[in-house]
Nucleic acid binder design. Structure first.
Length: 612
RNA sequence: GCGCCCGUAGCUCAGCCGGAUAGAGCGUUCGCCUCCGGAGCGAAAGGCCACAGGUUCGAAUCCUGUCGGGCGCACCA
């Protein structure tokens, strides 16, 4: 059955036919507090001009011609608005019992996030990328898409080389006392300092390591760091489908293949004179207006490819313009899901899997990469292939703003940095202190503290728009009250507690008498019924904050309902102490609220403990 | 210089493909456990929605301009 808003839209469309109005765009909205009705439409305003009539009069005529859909008790004219009153019993019952999962979209989305250099521990700037990408993947899946999450491993870059070289330069031996990526990160920093006195030797050593990396020789060294980093991501509840190693991308000729495609494009040329003589350049002026210099160098005149050309090759592969990587399993993740990896020793379809071929491609990369990302996307449009054009339309750069630390830009050199591991540990510690205080008899305190602490962290990264700068401050990031994950988790636990008590009493919602419910319950049901709509728009806009805001709204509404008092100041919304029939109906509503809160949190990758 | 993003309560932010009195949290003040979990609830105070024009029956929301702030614009990676 279509949701209530769609039904109302259809009913209005029918009614408008009697007024000889077609194709009007009908808006259905929730009625603000204090006005009569539950859903309303300002449609009469829109028609006032073309019908040359007073909107209030039009509203009356529409209502006269209107046949209310099931679940709507009556329509009322409120000035120029048409407001609908739902039939409490049937509305709440249908909201609670209907299946809210969204239909499959038959569309494969390739989503890249994380892509942290494998040479030191990840910091809170990366945290935002990881959490944002992970939440988007979850939301897209809920919206019915098939999602393949890729994590790009830049194992041939200078940073990886410096860290690996630092081990031999300092003859350092890992003793297991700290997390491996932290240990290596320290050597990396130390090496940067040593450059001041021993630049030549270091430069030579690093360069040698870079060459070995390109040949894929030191892959195990990189994998050591990577596994250590992955441990942190797993702790955040983040998992991947595929690791794509840059050395594999390079060695499988993606660069050559990408350039082969581009060289056929009329926008790509190799000038024989002028300042670009001998280089391969791409003219993007038609797609990126306002550039001072519309020519992008893909291959330098000395024959070396620019980094962006590598990225273009990778992007082409994501879109399925060519094949050429082989894969093997790399790890079993905490949930039991296998993590695959590109691998020279693997096969093209490891376990029968087909990677890439995304009909939609999403790159989660910070806003400072907007320019190169636009170039990468534009290259798809210039590829001249139908798939490329299609992929151009369906490529998105999810550009998020940076994270600053107490107002300062992060900088490894200046020591202004904060690792994910440190933040997780501190968040969990603070959460544990509160849990111990509030609920000392709780069984799995450590697990719950972790869920609450990590939840608070993730929520803080997700609750506002991606294009907003986040200034990381401990008190805000780890706040356990107010607009936070623990607030929502608490609302959830509170619902669980009622459900537990009900179960102990052997109550079942089969005996629900829906007609005994009132307007307070209708408000809650309205909110519950909104989730699919929220998921759809959050997926469309790649905007997890919409889910976060929704979760807060629902938790607030539920807390408010829970504490509601009649005019004598007595609680009038109790569940278990309500009369039979009403009691079971409210119980069913609470179950639905609990479920909806848990679903919302899970879309953000946040756990919903039953007790806390 | 050009391009992108931001400007809403003291602070941090929702609301933005136009609709009904602009909403939260933090902070401040005052109430609420004889009641299923007080990590909660209720209330007060706090807004020329940066500014100026325009479009519209209607603008925080759309358009133009101005002013503030951030970021980006290499034959680097």
């Amino acid at each position: 059955m279509p949701d209530i808003k769609t039904q109302l839209k259809d009913a209005l469309t029918d009614a408008l036919k009697t007024l000889k109005v077609e194709n009007a765009e009908i808006i259905i909205q929730e009625v603000p507090d204090g006005k009569p009705g539950d859903y309303g439409s300002p449609i009469a305003f829109v028609l006032a001009k073309s019908l040359r009539k007073n909107p209030a009069l039009i509203a009356q005529e529409i209502v006269a011609a209107l046949k209310n859909p099931a679940g709507i008790a009556r329509a009322e004219v409120v000035g120029p608005y048409i407001n609908f009153h739902v039939d409490t019993a049937s509305f709440v019952q249908s909201v609670i019992t209907s299946d809210t999962s969204l239909p499959a979209q038959n569309k494969k989305v390739v989503l890249e996030h994380t892509s942290v250099n494998p040479n030191k521990e990840a910091h809170v700037g990366h945290l935002r990328n990881i959490v944002l990408g992970d939440a988007c993947a979850r939301i897209l899946r809920a919206a019915g898409h098939e999602v393949e999450v890729q994590n790009y491993i830049d194992d041939t870059g200078r940073q990886a080389a410096e860290s690996i070289y630092a081990m031999s330069y300092f003859a350092a031996e890992y003793d297991g006392r700290q997390k491996y990526d932290h240990w290596l990160g320290e050597l990396y920093v130390k090496l940067s300092e040593a450059k001041e006195t021993d630049a030549e030797k270091i430069e030579q050593g690093v360069s040698e390591v870079m060459h070995r990396l390109e040949r894929g020789e030191l892959r195990n060294n990189v994998a050591d760091v990577l596994r250590s980093q992955l441990d942190s991501y797993y702790e955040l509840g983040v998992e991947y489908d595929l690791l794509v190693w840059e050395s594999d991308v390079v060695n499988s000729g993606f660069l050559r293949r990408g350039l082969d495609i581009l060289e056929k494009s009329p926008y790509v040329s190799r000038p024989t004179e002028g300042k670009y003589a001998g280089a391969l350049i791409m003219d993007v002026s038609e797609f990126i207006p306002g550039l001072e210099e519309p020519n992008i160098v893909l291959v330098r005149s000395d024959g070396n490819a620019m980094y962006v050309a590598k990225d273009i090759g990778y992007q082409f592969w994501k879109a399925g313009l060519f094949e050429g990587l082989s894969f093997a399993s790399f790890d079993t993740q905490p949930s039991g899901k296998v993590l695959y990896s590109s691998s020279p020793a693997g096969s093209e379809h490891s376990n029968g899997k087909t990677f890439a071929h995304g009909q939609e491609i999403i790159n989660v990369i910070d806003v400072r990469q907007s320019h190169p990302q636009t170039i990468v996307r534009t290259a798809l449009a210039l590829s001249g292939t139908p798939e490329g054009k299609e992929a151009f339309e369906n490529s998105h750069h999810l550009a998020y703003e940076v994270v600053t630390l107490e107002g300062q830009a992060m900088s490894g050199r200046k020591g202004i940095t904060l690792s994910i591991d440190e933040v997780i540990a501190e968040a969990t510690r603070r959460a544990k202190a509160i849990v111990e205080e509030k609920n000392p008899t709780l069984q799995e305190i450590d697990e719950v503290a972790h869920q609450v602490g990590v939840g608070a962290l993730r929520f803080g990264m997700l609750k506002s728009e991606a294009k907003r700068i986040i200034d990381f401050r401990w008190e805000q990031a780890l706040s356990l009250q107010g607009d936070s994950a623990p607030y929502v988790q608490y609302a959830h636990a509170r619902a669980c507690s009622i459900l537990r008590a009900a179960q102990a009493e052997g109550l079942s919602d089969a005996a629900a008498d829906w007609a005994k419910l009132g307007p307070l319950e209708v408000k809650l049901a309205q909110l519950i019924s909104k989730l699919p709509e929220v998921i759809t728009t959050a997926a469309r806009d790649l905007a997890p904050h919409q889910i976060a805001q929704y979760a807060l709204d629902l938790a607030t509404a539920w807390n408010s309902y829970y504490n509601h008092k009649d005019k004598y100041g007595r609680p009038d919304t109790q569940v278990l102490k309500a009369e039979p029939g009403l009691r079971e109906a409210r119980l069913a509503l609470v179950k639905s609220i609990k479920q909806t809160l848990a679903t919302s949190l899970s879309l953000l990758g946040i756990a919903a403990p039953e007790e806390m």
